[in-house]
């Protein structure tokens, strides 16, 4: 299955709208989309997961990598729109303590 990634850029924020399942097969695609953004100094990177039904551990690894990259490059990573199953994964792994996460559907991103 393919991942559908749309990126919107405003002045200081990049928003990635992800659709599909993030697993071992689609993870490289996500990595390619996120990583260059987190490498930009001062960049706010918001990842909208409203249309992501499932993430496996390889997928989680991409967010971990993005978090580390944002910390190293002084950018900021934020996840929004996580469904219950996806949120559970971030919460069990304790990643909700280290990554900025907003649960559920969000209108706008101000």
């Amino acid at each position: 299955m393919n991942l559908d990634i749309k990126t919107e850029h405003s002045k200081e924020e990049a928003i990635l709208y992800i659709e599909g399942e993030v697993d071992a097969y689609t993870a490289p695609q996500l990595k390619e989309a996120i990583e260059p953004l987190t490498e930009k100094d001062g960049q706010l990177v918001t990842v909208d997961l409203t249309n992501v039904s499932y993430i496996d551990s390889t997928g989680l690894g991409i967010f971990v990598g993005a978090l580390k990259s944002s910390e190293a490059n002084n950018s900021k990573l934020r996840l929004v729109g996580l469904n219950q199953r996806v949120m559970r994964l971030f919460s069990i792994t304790g990643l909700d303590e280290v990554i900025d996460i907003e649960e559920g559907k969000k209108e706008g991103t101000q």
Binding site: V64, I92, T93, G94, L95, E97, V98
Partner: peptide, 29 residues
């Protein structure tokens, strides 16, 4: 360290509880 919670079976009550331990996965911080 971020591991899938296990279960604890209570024999006297014949019930299962979640055996979870909060903590971030190894290798982050």
């Amino acid at each position: 360290a971020g591991h899938e919670p296990g279960f604890y079976y209570n024999y006297a009550e014949d019930s299962f509880d979640e055996l979870s331990a909060k903590g971030v996965v190894l290798g982050i911080r």
